[in-house]
Simulated scan of single mutants.
Amino acid sequence: MKNIYLNAGTINKVFNELETSFKGVLNSNNNEFKLALDSNLIKGNIDGVTFINGITSIQASITFSDETLLSIEPLSKSSILFAYCTEGSVKHSFGISGHKSILRKHHSAVVTSTRSINTILHFQKNIPVKLSLIKVETEEAAHANSSLISQLKKTFLHREPNYSYQGLQNLKIAEKFEQLDDVTSHGMIGHTIKKEILQSILALEIEDNTDNLIKMSRAIKRSTLNQINELKKIPNFIKNYAVETLYSKVINSKNRIIFK
């Protein structure tokens, strides 16, 4: 079992730490980062890009040669972390001893935290994993009051102290990540295309989470109404039972009189 600790910070610091921890080769240009990994512990690539609106995206296509725990410093209270798995699976927990949830292929997760506790990612041995992370800083962003950021804050922040939501399979989001992988343009054009795709993914996450909350609310209401309707039936059931019982007693009484 290998334990890797990663300090939270700017994307520059994150990739510099990844380069040091995993002994990789890092290339960076215009807020875009590419890390090639080929060591005894890990093989693959990790790419990242950051935008002035507080959105940072990291795509990892990696395989560990040993069971590995990646411990990430606590998120800021204004941060939202979205994760999406396109191959393999990853376990997540708040702290090493916290409850473990599994992020499976083509499923997404949303994580926020207001407590000083590390986010732990659990990687299996010799299992290829393709994982995408989108981190949104809702307060420090240059466009913190934008419509998208406001909707993200309203939808995902101010919930439980450590909030983790496991979404269902969403083919629309899967398609967007495929589009992100297929971007070949460089410079400002490529940067703009990636930004638009990532914003579309975040919009879909808002829609997906909101729809699930609505469905859950409706399910709870249906369950409550069903319980109320069942309770309403009880008086009629008791009344009918009493009438049938009384009628049965009268009939039995008459039969006894006739056959005497």
Rank of each mutant, 00 (worst) to 15 (best):
N40H: 07
G44K: 00
N145A: 14
Q59A: 07
G9C: 11
K221T: 14
G95E: 13
Q124S: 06
I193F: 12
K125L: 14
S21K: 03
D38A: 11
I214E: 10
S164I: 15
L213T: 10
T119S: 15
L121S: 07
G88Y: 02
Y247H: 11
S108W: 15
I134Y: 05
L37P: 14
D38Q: 13
S150L: 12
S132K: 03
E178A: 06
I96T: 14
T20Y: 12
D66G: 01
L152P: 04
I62T: 06
K249H: 03
G167L: 10
N31F: 12
H107A: 05
L70H: 01
K215S: 11
H106P: 00
V129L: 00
V183G: 07
N170E: 04
T184I: 14
I134V: 14
I80G: 03
S76N: 09
I201Y: 04
S108T: 06
N145M: 07
F94R: 13
N226P: 01
L204P: 03
L152S: 02
I149G: 05
I80Q: 02
S39I: 01
F123Y: 09
Q151S: 12
I96A: 11
S150A: 08
N118H: 10
N252C: 10
I134E: 08
N31L: 12
I58F: 00
M188T: 08
I149W: 08
T224N: 12
I46S: 01
S79C: 11
N29F: 08
H191I: 00
G95D: 11
A174T: 05
V250Y: 15
L171M: 07
Y247R: 13
T112C: 04
